[in-house]
Design a protein around this nucleic acid. Structure first.
Lengths: 91, 91
DNA sequence: ATTGGATATGCAGTATTTGCATATAGAAAC
DNA sequence: GTTTCTATATGCAAATACTGCATATCCAAT
C-alpha cells in the first residue's frame, strides 16, 4: 500500500476530501518529525515509539571491491513497536 | 512527547477538538495496522515504510539464570525511514 | 503519459542489534 | 487514584543492519 492508497482509505473513513485527508496526514507526520528534530522521542500508546538513534562512526567495507572505508557517525529514526503491536502478529 | 501531547498539538494545527483529533489519529494508525495485518507493507513517501518482518527461530538465553532457551519464530513491525528522513538528521 | 526520483535487491564481511526472563521504577491512561 | 504500560538492566548467541554500486521496479509529480 502506498501513500496514495492510504489517503484514499482515510478519505473514506474520515469523511474528508482526498486533499483534506492528505493535509491532515501530512500535518501529523510533520508534527512527529518536528518533535524528533528537537531530539524528543514520540511515544504512542498501543502503537509504538519513534526515537532518534545515534550511530557511532565505524569501519565498513565496500562489498564490491572489499576495500575498507570509514563510515562517519550518523543518526536515524527508529521505531519500536509497542507490546500490543507485537501481539497482533504473534498470537 | 506522548500521545496526549501529540493529540493536543494536532488539535491546534488541524482545528479540531481533542476528541476529534484523537479519533482521526486512531483511524490512521488503525488503517496502517490493518494493512500490516494483511501482510501488506505501507509506504509513505517522504516519511518511511512500515513492514512486517519475519524473524526466524533461534537460541536465546535467560539473562538471570544463564540457561539457554529456544525462541520460536515471530513477526514484528519494522519501520524503515525514507531517504528524506535520514537527511534531516545528517546534514 | 512521461520522467525524474526513490526504493528493493544482491553481494561480503563486520558491527550492531535483538530478544530471551523478570523485577522495579516510572510514566501514562482511564 | 488505580491500573496498565513501558524503560531499564543483566549475558550472550544468532540475526540483521550497514557499506558502494548497478539494475530493475515502482511511485510522485509534472
Amino acid at each position: 500500500m502506498n501513500k496514495k492508497q492510504l489517503i484514499a482509505k482515510l478519505s473514506g473513513s474520515l469523511n474528508l476530501s482526498k486533499a483534506d485527508a492528505e493535509r491532515t496526514f501530512d500535518t501529523i507526520t510533520n508534527t512527529i518529525l518536528d518533535a524528533l528534530k528537537g531530539d524528543d522521542s514520540v511515544k504512542i500508546a498501543g502503537f509504538g515509539t519513534y526515537k532518534v538513534a545515534k550511530r557511532k562512526a565505524r569501519v565498513g567495507r565496500n562489498p564490491r571491491t572489499g576495500e575498507q572505508i570509514q563510515i562517519g557517525a550518523s543518526q536515524k529514526v527508529k521505531f519500536l513497536p509497542a507490546k500490543a503491536l507485537k501481539e497482533v502478529f504473534n498470537k
